[in-house]
Design a protein around this nucleic acid. Structure first.
Lengths: 355, 355
DNA sequence: TCTAGCACTCGGATATCTCGAGTGCTAATT
DNA sequence: AATTAGCACTCGAGATATCCGAGTGCTAGA
């Protein structure tokens, strides 16, 4: 399993082995208990035979490096975002999930449902297993292959367009036309479009259409002309749509560090609007392996005390979407990473097998 | 505009005019400020020229009747659920929305979008205008008319069934069949089903199919036999599905009476699972006018400190769905009632005009 | 370089106090 | 009989004080 930092984040800080050990213990302890960790506890647990005083000195150094901080003078230390980052990048040992757990996940994912439903399911699954919020970005539509197109008259000048995509997904659009078509005209238009466009992905379809229109506008008979007009209005809005399913938001209410109601609210509102989240997640698309954003790194304010662990999924080794988990920075990264990684693999496998 | 209580809730408590006036003022004041109302304030505001002492006596009576209560000895009074109920049933004066506001709502609702999108929009609208949570129960599928059916082969033994309903709604199902069909066979099956079933609502379709199968099973040729088998598996799952869109949940975070994080959480979880909420809302379907559930009346625990103001909407004077608002019991009922009522009417109008 | 020792800090828990809004009761007033 | 004034009382909110102990930083000695 491969874990990558977002490209722009570079860790230059170097610390020696003893400091590493202590930082690691500190983070593990803090993640477990949620309490600032004091020098005494750390000295005792670390098995390094150091006195609390020595540990304190080291903590002083780590604090100077910006890896830990103390909430106030007489409390222990807690990791900073930078501390988590170092931890995740070089201290963390991720053990893969044991086989039982993988099987359990597989069972949940490998069902017969439509992709749409499956996405919801995976999202809930992630949320359920991690007790945080699960998120799945739906496959980017542009890259999907168009299998078939149907046109049905609804009323004069209104046509229901049904696009059957690859992998059992179906999209419906309603378009208005300047002219009223007879059912048989519609059938002809559909036939033409199916013949000339089926099997290409939406982006390609769109380009090809525009080209056709430019080149042959004058030569076409009226019907084909109309077909192209119509198709253009269908595919016009195709680009922007992709969607993002978030499940288990309420899990986040359990984390004391998020329970300030205003922060929580802004987070939930962010989930609802999704736009920004999508943008953050988009950055993960394409890069292989598990990606992690910690706290501020996402550059998106409502996610400030949160981390984002994601992995892309896809078919034929081409990433088509991203899934992951959103939770407080203070999360059990090792576990979450394994889960997200496994889920992405399993989900890809299911999509692949549906071919 | 008509406001109805759920049938089972009967108000028998009789109070005299002066008590009514005071209760009304108390509720209005409490709804406005969220503070328990004391005798002095009430005496001053009421213009009844009563001394605080008198008001206190009256409050004592109202408390004995269970209409108000005091959070503790030395605080003012707040309304109980029963108090709100009496208020809503006989004290409330709802003024209709002024024309500007109706126009604004109308503009938001009367768009060209598909019913699905429109439902989301109406839900957000309700949430936005009232600053509470908006909820719309999607039209019950059983009553919808089937216009057209399409069958498309996905792979061997997997068929995508597209049901085009009335009013631009489309449902997709994937079914597995025992046998692999050729495209032309599928076309024939679709033709047969369209001919014999188009125009009926799903419930009827289902009944008719079962009847057909019993009566003529032996007489049919193999193809038709298969058509029926297939159709049966499509319509089998038709009954249960209806859905419910809730928007603006986070608005509820603003209300101090709900801000206890556990209560809030159980409420949000309830929104997510929706099942129970749907059940409560189902009770509203069919009854004309605006319906109000206050606090415990819904019989559903997570809604305890909440009220529900709903109205049904429909086409041709037949209710097909319910919309409304969920907020704290302490809400501005007059305003909310007008808004819900107006929205339901406007929504119905839009649906009707789409014929 | 590490550690023991020590004075110091600060947050959290708990107790105490004060203030004032509001009550209920009683007795006087209308 | 209904209303009101008067008064003692209650109780919560907020401010203030106190204590405790975990944890720190620093210094000097091992």
């Amino acid at each position: 399993m491969q874990v990558r930092s977002p490209a722009e984040i570079q860790m230059t800080t170097e610390i020696n082995e003893r400091e590493q050990t202590l930082l690691k213990m500190l983070i593990e302890s803090y993640v477990r208990d949620g309490q600032p960790v004091g020098s005494q506890k750390l000295a005792r647990d670390s098995r390094l035979n150091l006195s609390p005083a020595t540990v304190r000195n080291i903590m002083g150094d780590l604090e100077a490096l910006g890896l830990v901080s103390s909430p106030h003078t007489s409390a222990g230390r807690i990791p900073t975002d930078k501390g988590y980052r170092l931890f995740v990048d070089s201290l963390l040992t991720v053990q893969s999930l044991d086989n039982d757990e993988v099987q359990r996940l597989k069972q949940e994912i490998d069902t017969d449902e439509s992709v749409e439903v499956l996405i919801e399911r995976v999202s809930s699954l992630l949320s359920g297993v991690t007790h945080m919020a699960g998120v799945v970005v739906a496959p980017r539509r542009e890259h999907q292959v168009l299998r078939h197109i149907e046109l049905l008259p609804l009323s004069d000048q209104r046509i229901l367009v049904i696009l059957v995509m690859d992998k059992q997904e179906v999209q419906n659009r309603i378009i208005r036309t300047a002219h009223a078509y007879t059912p048989s005209e519609l059938q002809q238009v559909a036939n033409y479009l199916n013949a000339s466009l089926g099997g290409a992905d939406l982006q390609t379809v769109r380009k090809r259409l525009l080209a056709d229109m430019r080149e042959t506008r004058s030569k076409l008979d009226r019907l084909m002309q109309r077909a192209l007009d119509m198709a253009e209005s269908v595919f016009a809005e195709t680009a922007a749509q992709d969607d993002c399913v978030i499940a288990g938001q309420t899990n986040l209410m359990e984390f004391s560090e998020l329970s300030d109601i205003d922060r929580l609210r802004s987070l939930f509102d962010a989930f609802n609007s999704k736009q920004q989240i999508l943008h953050v997640l988009d950055q993960c698309l394409g890069s292989p392996g598990v990606q992690i954003f910690i706290g501020q790194e996402s550059g998106y304010e409502p996610l400030n005390n949160c981390s984002l662990v994601t992995a892309s999924y896809g078919v034929n080794n081409r990433a088509i979407g991203v899934l992951g988990v959103i939770g407080p920075t203070r999360m059990a990264y090792d576990r979450v990473i394994s889960i997200v990684d496994a889920t992405a693999r399993l989900f890809s496998a299911v999509l692949n097998q549906r071919h």
